[in-house]
Amino acid sequence: MRASGLAAAALALLAVAVLSIAVGAKPVPLSEVWHALLDRDAAEYAVVRQMRLPRTLLGLLAGTALGVAGAAMQALTRNPLADPGLLGINAGAAAAIATAALLFGVGGGTGQVWFALLGAAVVTVGVYAVGGGRSATPARLALAGAALNAALYSYVSAVMLLDSAGLERLRFWTVGSLASADTDTVRQVLPFIAVGLLVALAAARPLNALALGEDTAQALGARPALIRVVVIAAITLLCGAATAACGPIVFVGLIVPHLVRALTGPDLRWLLPYCGLLAPMLLLGSDVLGRVLGRPGELQVGIVTAVLGGPLFLWLVTRTTARP
């Protein structure tokens, strides 16, 4: 039942991916997509191979990364409101990238990814230190994350203010967009995300044990300290790489695990793969929607996810905190 659901999700994702290749300023008819991808002589070959395909691939990678990172994070902190965007991890990567651009002139490339990883790592460890402990309630952790977010964004905007060339580039990047994707971007982040995904999936079983609490996990024979380090490393890789490539994107890592949990229950061995398929569907779908709604230009995907995911988040909050 859950396995066939996974197959259906994969098919649906494929459909969205095809749509993502087809839709744009220069639309490709759905029947032509395959042709345009493979046939060098097709009229749309250049557009599809140089822009749409990398963009779609990047959306797939980043979406998977954010969804899996969100689910892992919610399990690790035992906090239903944990989201890499809301807790400031993506903003941490953004701040590191802005610093790199200002101080060392690093713009794009693998250098940017490394800086993003550094920023994401610092904030992940920090947030976990604050929120992973016994006492933090979901609201308090979310508040601590939001505060960090605010601080980091005010830093990023100060940097943009100092460096107007940076402003020109970063103001597009800080929104969260897939538009600048090319084959190089995909190639740069692919290894990081692949490793992160493998580690996260491997950690699913021990994370299941950890979900019952530190003491129970230990009684069940898991090693909480080790799991924590490994999962934090995975989250850092996933969020850092995704943010480096397409800017900080919120809510994808929060909403998808919630929706998926309704389907699969809390078992991370199912939850993580489902999130890995459905989160990119949301991200790519939002990107396509942004291209359709924003015509003749486009709406950046970060805006679409914020505007779509925000109300969902509010609904979630008002629903789950019904008791006075």
Partner: peptide, 20 residues
């Protein structure tokens, strides 16, 4: 706590809008 969570959600939405 509801004020906190709703505020945070609203802040994230508006940050997106502002960036746009």
């Amino acid at each position: 706590y509801r004020l906190v969570l709703v505020g945070i959600g609203m802040s994230a939405i508006l940050t997106g809008v502002n960036g746009y």
